[in-house]
Design a protein around this nucleic acid. Sequence first.
DNA 1: AATATCCGTATTTTT
DNA 2: TACGGATATT
Length: 681
Amino acid sequence: MPSDLIGQLNESQRQAVLHGEGPLLVVAGAGTGKTLTLVTRVARLIEEGAAPERMLLLTFTRRAAREMLARAARLVDGPAPGTVKVWGGTFHAIGNRLIRMHGRTLGIRPDFTVMDQADAADLMNLIRDELGHSAKDRRFPPKQTLAAIYSRTVNAGARLAEVLDTAFPWCRQEIEGIRSIFRRYTSRKLEHNVLDYDDLLLMWRALARAPETRTRLAGMFDHILVDEYQDTNVLQADILWHMRGPAANVTVVGDDAQAIYSFRSATVRNILDFPARFAGAHVVRLEQNYRSIPPILAACNEVIALSPERHEKTLWSARRGGRRPMLTTCLDEAEQSEVLCRNVLEHREEGTLLRRQAVLFRAAHHSDLLEVELARRNIPFVKYGGLKFLEAAHVKDVLALLRILDNPFDEVSWFRVLQLLEGVGPTGARRLMGWLGVRRELPDAPSPLRRLIDGPPECAPPVRDQLAELGSALRDCSTTDLPPAAQIERFRQFLIPVFDRLYSSARERLRDLEQLEHIASRYPSRARFVTELTLDPPVSTGDLAGPPLLDEDYLVLSTIHSAKGLEWDVVHVIHAADGMIPSDMATGSPEEIEEERRLLHVAMTRARDALYVYFPLRYYHRPKGLEDRHSYAQLTRFLPESVQALFDRRGPEALATDASVKAGPVQRVPEVEAFLASLWD
DNA sequence: AATATCCGTATTTTT
DNA sequence: TACGGATATT
């Protein structure tokens, strides 16, 4: 390792990089060079002879893992071929790999399919119907809620009753029904060779604990490094504990002031308890911020200082000068979009590329209006977070077809696919599934896929013909070794008439399938493609059809959650109103509110040179309606006077301009009225 | 009995 | 926008 690399680090960073054997906790505030430190540590370990293929780098997203490994490779000596052998990815992605390698010991076949949360919800729904909880006499939690309750319970390792009490009190009376659904849900997944997200962690932990495999797993890695440790949950901490190996060379990096994933059962206790659990852990704190100019950092510090919890760091800036952040009060959302666009373009004029600027918001739909305005002004953008490509109905349709080929006993996929046929609804699909034998009664039952291909069942001719079509599409894709892209192409042919019948925007949806085909062409096998798509879906949706070309400039729109770990020169935080941040879905308990405060802190600390916070005064309730129903919002409670004092302020423009120009309630213009009257009265 | 269709509503955040 | 619920249609 070139010594000047070490020389560029500050004292704390150097300590973290040079730390020898044993557990290490790096408490790293926002913008303190956490990634640089982690990457340099990886590079140094390799330089000193650590085997890359015996290192594991766990990050929050695959994107982060890829980026870090690429940077580490550059540090070692150019794009070193050795570095890419480092195991890197999310807990879920690594779990997926390990379970495919060693799962047989637990009775899991290596060709299992992975369900995303929407699939999990669909299976819950299927079971809910079976158990008769869909009766209308009383309301039972809807499928997404069931999936959410399940996931939270499993990840927290808590009793169902407890989780219901604390997080889902309105479902408390239904606990018996929920329990019976969960029981069947669990066994059903095993029978059908399907794992959900949570299983990837559960089974990994089971492997790491099982007498037959635990030594092998704990012996796989000499070094394990975990990024964003404050956002891991109990299950993940357990996994780390069991995987730690004899030397316990475990490095975790995190910041309790940036914990924003408690809805996924993440707990800051993991980071707080790390020194106790991993005895002899060395602790390093990074407090020097290299990212933001001092006035921005001052505002960020003040926001988090108001948190009643103890955050033992105060960040100080290594940079000088700069302008204070701007708090802009807008009349309404429309004005917010307008002012924002102007600011964005102004910065671009001054030389800040659009992609060095980001708009951050609490919930995915908060940018809806802005997106319209950006499109109108021809400002290109990419949106991260929110509805994913593969949550769109048509993408799920083709994915279900692909899944059936890999796992002919995938109930959820059959249920979806069969309902694509005209004249087949939920009931018809269930009957057909019975005929196909999708619910595997015997361990070595014949494949439903074979049954369909060999000859359609006795049923009404229109359905039978469509089944034959479906069968031939499935056969074409299963018997030859078509590459994944060609299989999608084949299914697209099958889906053209289906989409025309089912969806109003059939053409756009079919275009999306071409997009999918394009993505698939990068994958060697269908199974790989489907799994990787589930674990690491493309980020943008719909009409944007794929990532913009690399040399194109685009503004970044992102939920605050998806902005984690990233930075931009100019950051715009919109909807800084109570009810948005904190979301009024999250004001139930003090803990929830504190998490919302950290969320705002995370958003603000993404900014390097300029920070804008926008607050619309007025919200309209019926976007479509003609009536002018609106209410007035309060500035977010996280920006009280003491924090506002650190901002420059700009008021609502419409009020600031000359009073006579201000648009009142609709004006009467007699001349126009008279003209119109002449046309139709 | 099953499917199609319409309407109102509520909608966080992610692997 | 997608879901659940209710009603209309086959």
